[in-house]
């Protein structure tokens, strides 16, 4: 998880500039989105329903017409050079979109053919084996479980060996076991050097898989950060000490960074970093003892990525 944030479009395999989308009904789904994605990174686009995640992916892949702005894939414009850009992109949409009466191997062969690639049974076999679908290759789609159907959609998206893979909510409505299976699939793809952009509601998913996280809210990207940086923010905790007797003010002997007194004087709040060598808790407790402040109860709270996320996406409402 040490991929660099691309600083300019030169390093980016995908470069989105000022992309906006207003639907015919007047709803504005995207407001001048800028985003660069680096080669080989796994990028999680995080946001609530209706934030514009699927619209953004739709524009890049050719399903949605942008109202303004431009998108380049490997330096090629997605409109002018659509054959070049689409040949390098694989898309797994959110909705289960399959022909129920097609056999698994035929469905994958069809996708490969659409992309103009000659049949390559060895490659298709490898894709199906990687997704644990080889044994099901002669089954009709309708005979498969939900999780398998979703994996077939990934196999179809990989059939032409794309460099960039879009996974739109790959684990929506999928049980815990399948979610973990999906994470393994993504990890394998990362090892093969694929660039993966996934959308999700789940913070855990972003943490587990992504090198970088972008938070989208009401059509605007409000934060793009390396997952590791976000995790560091998440490492902060808050210690709350319930006091036996209220304090009028914070005694000078106690004053340290991160310590504050509650308005009613009955509690002390201390923010600290769990990742650091010295959290300051021991010192604080000794100082309290020395100052004769008695503690009735204590609790700690974690400021989670979930909270950061809720703060961010709830900010405008």
């Amino acid at each position: 998880m040490t991929h660099e944030t691309p600083s300019g479009s030169a390093a980016a395999v995908l470069s989105i500039k000022g992309v906006s989308k207003t639907y015919a009904g007047g709803f504005t789904a995207l407001k001048s989105v800028d985003l660069d994605i680096a080669k080989g990174e796994i990028f999680a686009l995080l946001g609530p329903n209706g934030a514009g995640k699927t619209t953004l992916i739709g524009i890049i892949c050719g399903l949605v017409n942008a109202s303004s702005g431009s998108v380049e894939v490997f330096g090629h414009d997605i409109k002018g050079d659509f054959r070049l850009t689409r040949a390098r992109i694989g898309l797994v949409p959110q909705e289960m979109s399959i022909d129920m009466f097609t056999k698994v191997k035929d469905a994958v062969a069809y996708s490969r053919g659409l992309f103009g690639k000659p049949a390559d049974p060895a490659y298709v076999e490898q894709v199906l084996r990687d997704l644990s679908l080889w044994d099901k290759r002669n089954e009709q789609m309708r005979a498969l479980s939900g999780g398998m159907k979703r994996r077939v959609m990934i196999a179809k998206a990989l059939s032409h060996d794309p460099d960039i893979l879009f996974l739109d909510e790959p684990t929506a409505g999928v049980d815990v076991e399948l979610r973990q299976g999906m994470w393994q699939v993504v990890e394998k793809l990362r090892q093969r050097g694929k660039t993966i952009i996934l959308t999700t509601h789940y913070i855990q998913e972003a943490e587990e898989m992504a090198d970088r996280v972008g938070v989208i809210r009401q059509g605007e990207i409000v934060l793009v950060e390396e997952t590791a940086t976000l995790m560091a923010k998440m490492g902060r905790k808050k210690l709350t000490l319930q006091l036996a007797e209220p304090l009028q003010a914070l005694p000078e002997a106690l004053a340290v960074d991160g310590l504050s007194l509650a308005e009613d004087g009955y509690a002390l709040h201390f923010d600290y970093d769990t990742q650091s060598d010295r959290t300051g808790i021991t010192t604080l407790l000794s100082n309290l003892n020395a100052a004769g402040v008695s503690v009735r109860d204590l609790e700690t709270q974690q400021s989670s990525l979930e909270e950061i996320f809720v703060d961010l996406v709830g900010g405008a409402s």
């Binding site: 892949c61 689409r86 040949a87 992109i89 979109s97 179809k156």
Partner: peptide, 18 residues
């Protein structure tokens, strides 16, 4: 109409095909 109905039209639209 069938690909539109079952959603598989996304494949036609996202493929490098005119």
């Amino acid at each position: 109409y069938f690909p539109k109905f079952n959603g598989t039209v996304y494949e036609l639209l996202s493929a490098p095909i005119s």
